[in-house]
């Protein structure tokens, strides 16, 4: 079954975003040798250190599930949310109001 115009555009946007992220990751890690860690954690760490405090998380995915625990959890969450978004988008924006 051929994708309709909306699906083609959505797939093109997704491919573009993935390529952009892959390119940025490649340049950051391979070319520039950076760790690309989260800004939230860096600023929060700076703030905590400046006040002599330390933070913790509810579920330490790396400690519980190993090196790939966090990427795997993010991938799973992204896939589930992505499918939900894809499922509801046409209903919300193309199917009118009686879709609840």
């Amino acid at each position: 079954m051929m994708p309709d115009p909306f699906e083609r555009r959505a797939l093109a946007v997704m491919a573009g975003m993935v390529l952009l992220m892959l390119a940025s990751s490649y340049v950051g890690t391979v070319v520039l040798g950076q760790d690309l860690g989260g800004t939230d954690a860096k600023v929060e760490g700076l703030a905590a250190d400046s006040a002599g405090r330390s933070g913790g998380v509810v579920l330490d995915l790396e400690a519980e599930f190993g090196e790939y625990g966090e990427p795997a959890a993010f991938t799973l969450a992204g896939v589930v949310s992505g499918f939900l978004t894809g499922l509801l988008w046409p209903r919300a924006f193309h199917g009118g109001g009686n879709v609840a």
Binding site: S24, S25, G28, T29, D35, G37, G38, T39, K42, A77
Partner: peptide, 14 residues
Amino acid sequence: SVWHIPVAVTGSSS
């Protein structure tokens, strides 16, 4: 809001 996007020039992601 958990979609970390690498910003190569700053060496971090957000």
